[in-house]
């Protein structure tokens, strides 16, 4: 069914089932729940340790027996800032925000065109988009470097904005297409009978339905753009470097200062971790080009 109507609210919640019979089942569930918690904590532990270390003094961080109890300090974060992370953060923000805006600007109309008003070649276009994601970046880095060098755009943040847009656009089109397709066709027909012009239908009826999807798409673009390293390391230097590039330079110079490294890594990872937590329900939909909901 294209259209689903959720159950009316006046249906009563079923009464709680009688307890005793479920005991055996829930005992197993409790144990497996404990296992799940242990595994979850194990997976998360390195991240936790990184954050913890970032609040340590170097002497507390650099011990053969890991220290859990220590006096927390913000010194390491100050150190990262005085090492000059500022401009790199600004570059990362510019690259991420502008590429994401550009993706939405180009992608929303495209997704609309391929989903709600398809023409004959629509499928070909869709598969062209997806095929570009399968083209390895290494196969294009050489000419991109040569061309960018020739037009004098090396070490320029707008170069990254353009490349990140190209990198994220196919994913965004596919993902938003799947959200557009969830809009019931009857609604659009009703709107056309009601006499709403196309742009009003889009703004007043379609957009409110798909805006959570667009938001999730934007977050996924943010994650990819913020984390991108290959283009950044090859096409930028002192002026347009992003946070991952800063991190690399920082390691080479501060190799032995674990606490400060942890602070830098935490700062690099924090924005996208939060974005990812918010978008976690739609992550798979984005990465699988909308094939999985």
């Amino acid at each position: 069914m294209a259209v689903t109507t959720s159950t009316p609210p006046d249906t009563q919640e079923p009464a709680a089932p009688p307890e005793p019979r479920r005991q055996k089942r829930s005992a197993a569930n409790v144990w497996l729940g404990v296992v799940a918690w242990i595994v979850g904590i194990a997976f998360f532990f390195p991240v936790f340790w990184m954050v913890l270390t970032s609040f340590k003094q170097e002497t507390d961080a650099y011990t053969t027996t890991p220290k859990i109890i220590f006096e927390p300090t913000l010194e390491q974060y100050e150190g990262v800032f005085s090492a000059g992370v500022g401009p790199y953060l600004v570059n990362s923000v510019i690259a991420t925000v502008f590429s994401t805006l550009l993706v939405l600007l180009l992608g929303i109309p495209a997704a609309f065109a391929v989903s709600l008003r398809p023409v004959k070649k629509t499928q070909d276009v869709l598969f062209f988009f997806i095929s570009t994601k399968m083209l390895p970046v290494v196969a294009v880095i050489v000419p991109i470097y040569v061309v960018v060098n020739q037009i004098g755009m090396l070490d320029n943040i707008w170069t990254l904005v353009v490349l990140y847009t190209g990198m994220n656009l196919p994913i965004a089109v596919w993902m938003m297409r799947s959200f557009f397709l969830e809009v019931p066709g009857e609604l659009l027909e009703q709107a056309s009978i009601d006499g709403a012009p196309l742009w009003r239908t889009l703004r007043e009826i379609v957009l409110p339905i798909i805006s959570p999807g667009i938001f999730a798409t934007a977050l996924i673009c943010v994650i990819f753009a913020w984390n991108e390293f290959f283009f950044a390391v090859n096409l930028t230097a002192a002026n347009a470097g992003t946070v991952p590039v800063f991190l690399v330079g920082f390691i080479t110079s501060e190799g032995l200062y674990w606490a400060q490294l942890s602070a830098a890594a935490t700062m690099a990872a924090l924005p996208v971790v939060i974005a990812g937590w918010v978008a976690q329900n739609k992550l798979v939909q984005g990465l699988s080009f909308g094939a999985v909901k």
């Binding site: 109507t5 019931p184 009857e186 027909e189 009703q190 709107a191 007043e204 009826i205 339905i209």
Partner: peptide, 11 residues
């Protein structure tokens, strides 16, 4: 027109 699934605007 009244549609089978009513086509009410959810927003």
């Amino acid at each position: 027109m009244v549609f089978q699934n009513y086509a009410l605007y959810p927003s």
